[in-house]
Design a protein around this nucleic acid. Structure first.
Length: 327
DNA sequence: AACCGTCACAACCGCATGCGA
DNA sequence: CTCGCATGCGGTTGTGACGGT
């Protein structure tokens, strides 16, 4: 089967996102949701492929994305979960609110893996010293307990004692190298350690799934005093879109996808706005077919007789429309 | 000041997966 | 059941900042 490209290769920008592009994407997604990533850039006025837009939104622009250094607790969680789950970063990320799989992946490769490598190296020397002095097998549960691992947890590297002198930074540290027996062993070890918070966390994740449309008026608004906009603070952008867009007062209710918009409930009151210019989504790019009223189907979105009480959303059937219609 | 190496982070790429026609 | 599509995921690469020489 030949896959169609995710986007047209010609004329689409790649590389770092500009502030203007961020603004456009934030404005569009906060108002209309990401109903279709592939078509979204056309409507948002972005010369990017949908895939790029999705990545930018999920990894950087979402209001709930936590930035800054990882706390000790977060790092410990990452290490524990990686020990148990391997490189399933998206799963691990669900247990670290505000952190994306990309964040975790980057932090693992740039910091944690190396740190663990050093620790393993140190522990191996300790182990060797103990072995030399006593001649007995050292306490297995004490190995690798360096602040990251609990008693009883085992690193894959330590388990591979057959290697005479492995490089602590070698790919051996990757859990993807685990044998199935290694994985089973580690699962059992965690179970023995009472490593049961995973199930508890799943409940929280499920509770964050949106089932109803988001009512933007729940967000505290304070759009005055805007000086400088930073893409990382998309929550501020939401305020600005609402306050500055001439259409925003129409759009009291946004219908968003039933996926990962739980973050919208976590938006905090804005105390420091930094938006230089209001971005107005180019509604002329959105065909009326895509905009249907939830209450009164006889009026178009731009109707002068528009009733502010009506609810509007993007047409659920938009996926079926010919893509050429929008080109 | 210029160069170079390292690091952290952002972004891209290709494949996997789920779903509807 | 197969196909085509959209989206998700993980590996990899690109890039800018920073510090050392």
């Amino acid at each position: 089967m030949v896959r169609t490209p995710c986007c047209d290769k010609d004329g689409l920008k790649k590389g770092s996102w500009t502030q203007e592009e961020d603004n456009k994407l934030i404005a569009y997604v906060t108002r209309y949701g990401h109903w279709n990533w592939r078509l979204l850039p056309k409507f948002a006025g972005l010369a990017r492929c949908g895939k790029s837009c999705r990545l930018r939104w999920l990894n950087y622009l979402r209001p709930d994305v936590k930035r800054g250094n990882f706390s000790d607790e977060e790092e410990e969680t990452i290490v524990r979960l990686h020990e148990k789950l391997g490189n399933r970063w998206s799963v691990i990320a669900t247990h670290l609110p505000g952190r994306t799989d990309n964040d975790l992946k980057n932090h693992w490769h740039t910091t944690l893996k190396k740190r663990l490598g050093k620790n393993v190296h140190t522990e191996r020397h300790v182990k060797a010293a103990k072995s030399n002095s006593s001649g007995a097998n050292p306490d297995k549960d004490s190995i690798y307990n360096n602040g990251f691992f609990l008693e009883g947890s085992h690193s894959p590297t330590v388990s591979k004692t057959s290697d005479p002198d492995p490089d602590p930074l070698s790919p051996e540290l990757s859990s993807s190298e685990f044998s199935s027996s290694d994985y089973t062993t580690h699962q059992n070890l965690f179970a023995e350690d009472g490593f049961d918070f995973l199930d508890a966390c799943l409940e929280d994740v499920n509770q964050n799934i949106w089932t109803e449309s988001f009512h933007i008026s729940q967000v505290t608004t304070q759009a005055n005093g805007i000086d400088n906009f930073h893409g990382s603070d998309a929550a501020k952008a939401m305020e600005c879109v609402r306050a500055e867009s001439p259409l925003s007062y129409h759009n009291e209710n946004l219908v968003v996808e039933n996926d990962d918009f739980g973050f919208l409930g976590a938006i905090e009151p804005i105390t420091e706005n930094s938006w230089t210019e209001a971005f107005v989504a180019d509604m002329s790019l959105i065909p009326n077919e895509l905009l249907v009223p939830l209450v009164n189907e006889s009026e178009s979105y731009f109707s002068s007789t528009y009733d502010s009480e009506d609810l509007w959303c993007l047409n659920d059937n938009s996926h079926d429309l010919d893509v050429n219609l929008f080109q």
